[in-house]
Design a protein around this nucleic acid. Structure first.
Lengths: 383, 383
DNA sequence: CAGGTTTTGTTGCTTCCGAAAACTAAAACG
DNA sequence: CGTTTTAGTTTTCGGAAGCAACAAAACCTG
């Protein structure tokens, strides 16, 4: 295990990407998938195996097949690690994930909103993290940071986060200076999409969208295998799309934004405004299941609106799949059904027929994991 | 001028693309723009000049500059031609455009909606076209066909056109068989976007959207330099986005689609339904300019709705520019202003500040020109 | 159980592409 | 009339990938 080269050429990167996404593969199948000859694979794999990033293992065939058994190539999870942290208004958690996306260590950081303090605490946290995991510092390849807001193209500066009240904060530079590690900033919805592409169900997809339901509604897309950032890094910022002209005032200054209708807090606010005594959205769902008309109405509004926005998104980009990721236990059966129905009814039938619309509920250190995925993505696919 | 090779490798294609989009360029500047060394250019340009696709011309410097003057490389417009035709419910026009997008001949075809007849008439039209232009048949590199509806990924089959009542019509094959030319089918909004990218203002842009106002509303995007087709070829199909729940019934079977609010026919319908005696949208604009409240209301509805949809589109993909192309003299000053205002008000300020939103009015053989652009695009960038 | 078959992966050899350095060409400057 | 500056070319070299033949490791057959 020599000190990692860290610089792989294009073909090697393509191979790493394939192995990472398609699981363990034989050289021959890799060659086919990559569209190159077998001899190329011999040379390529040799360097990767020598570098230690790829492991070779004999295939354990269930049923005996003819011919020489293949040697499977798989990622070496222990080759390197990435740290990740999500900066919100809550106590941040710094996590360490390995090359295949598994969390191997975590450490809770003190809360702060001052950029310098945040960077300093992350730097201290990194030391704790690698000590806890028992890995040499050189194996930590980078750190990803998720923020809710706009981030520049270089993953360097938080241009604008109303949530944190940050404007042009070069957080990545601060962290890099204090930790000596490559640091990458990214919008939280985009980190979630990156995780889905790198380690989640979307590994084999080139065109998909992710919609996150957390404090607010977030959205990001992979298009043609690349994360869509947009000309200003604002692609996917649907939270402040106007969905009700003259609707309720939003933090952003406008009225009737999606966030004022479909964000978990907004749903609760609606329910209480309509006279329901509820503390969680689950309770609203519970009431709705008993045909409480007010509860039904509240959930209907949220689900139908969210569904309409997703439908629009689908019509604009025609993705292969949309992943709705619920990080705050807000999407119950009813809202889910409503989203599905609304999307089905508002998307061209030819498109709706093949669209995969899946829901998942996550919790815990999810956002920090997604942040780590950004560092991993930078490592796997630098440009 | 040997018979055209027609097959250029990747580097040559990249060079052709650069020369076509960036205008006449010296070898040195091409090398910089292409990110390759100067020596590569020498070999590349030689083959292209020998093939006849690129012309060399001495630079005419206005002000004397130091150093050896550069030899400018420019496309040879006469190297090849492309035919294009748009199939609608009106009489089709077949046009011939050269390598830089100029129309050099046109011929009107009989109207038909039967695929075989259409193909046969196009084949006859092609003969007339090349005779009229006086070019050898080998110089006609392909033919593009615009249809309003869904087209498969191979540009071969019209999967679905409610407009023409076509389903799974392999029109490209029919035309190819009857003309012996490469034939490419494409959705009309996407042909318009392709023209904008290849020959229009968007040549230097990698991320932009085109919204067409013709019989209905169309939309297509270039993302990362590539036309966005989507998983089902339906990217950009916003005409049937629901914008008014329970709105007027649409041809598509749903209610309240964008087409029932913002399509030129819908605007006229609205105006007449509200009691205005008008024959054109210009007349409505005229009335509105005199503060006719009904006319103002009608135009406001259309403009604000269109603006909201464009705003959503911008938030989803964050393009550098949006080109609104009016092919039916429907977008007057008032609607234009309303669109601008609505987009400005509904897009994140950071994004709205840099967004270019431009309007243009076209007529005549526009759609056929755009169709020809698709054949040109296939020639320049086959894959 | 020996030899054929089938599939996997490797070793040379060749070819192609493109980058770096050094060179030539053509203009303005003084 | 040399010097400087920029443009373009020639030469040389190294890396990457293809083809073909070869070696390895399993199964199948008689």
């Amino acid at each position: 295990m020599p000190a990692m080269a860290r610089k792989f050429n294009a073909s090697q990167q393509a191979m790493i990407h394939l192995i990472a996404t398609m699981g363990p593969l034989s050289r021959t199948r890799l060659a086919r998938a990559l569209g190159v000859g077998k001899p190329a694979l011999t040379a390529l794999t040799r360097t990767l195996i020598e570098a230690g990033i790829v492991l070779e293992a004999r295939e354990e065939a269930e049923e005996p097949r003819q011919g020489r058994p293949s040697m499977l190539l798989a990622m070496n999870p222990d080759y390197g690690y990435f740290a990740g942290v999500s900066i919100t208004l809550e106590q941040p958690v710094l996590v360490l994930v390995d090359l295949v996306g598994h969390v191997t260590a975590r450490v809770e950081l003190p809360f702060s909103r001052d950029p310098d303090t945040v960077a300093a605490q992350i730097a201290e946290g990194v030391d704790v993290l690698i000590a806890e995991a028992g890995i040499p510092r050189e194996r930590l390849f980078g750190i990803g940071v998720a923020v809710s807001g706009l981030v520049d193209a270089g993953h360097e500066i938080c241009l604008n986060s109303t949530h944190l009240d940050w404007h042009n904060i070069p957080l990545a530079r601060l962290i890099r200076e204090k930790t000596g590690l490559p640091a990458y900033l990214e919008n939280d919805a985009k980190t979630a999409a990156t995780r889905e592409k790198l380690f989640g169900e979307a590994r084999i997809l080139d065109d998909f969208a992710v919609v996150t339901i957390g404090d607010g509604v977030g959205c990001a897309s992979f298009i043609d295998g690349k994360l869509r950032r947009g000309h200003n890094g604002g692609a996917g910022e649907i939270a402040h799309t106007t969905v009700e002209t003259g609707g309720r005032p939003c933090k952003c200054g406008k009225r009737g934004c999606l966030d004022t209708v479909a964000a978990p807090g907004a749903i609760l606010h609606d329910a209480r405004g309509a006279g329901l005594k509820v503390a969680t959205i689950a309770e609203i769902e519970h009431l709705a299941a008993r045909n409480d008309p007010v509860a039904l109405d509240v959930l209907h509004r949220a689900g139908a609106t969210l569904g309409a926005v997703i439908a629009h998104l689908v019509q604009v980009n025609d993705p292969e799949a949309v992943f709705v990721i619920d990080t705050s236990a807000a999407i119950g059966t009813l809202i889910r059904t409503l989203i599905q129905q609304t999307v089905g009814a508002n998307v061209l039938p030819d498109m709706g027929a093949t669209l995969r619309l899946t829901f998942s509920r996550v919790s815990g250190d999810f956002w920090s994991q997604t942040a780590a995925s950004v560092a991993a993505h930078k490592f796997f696919v630098p440009d």
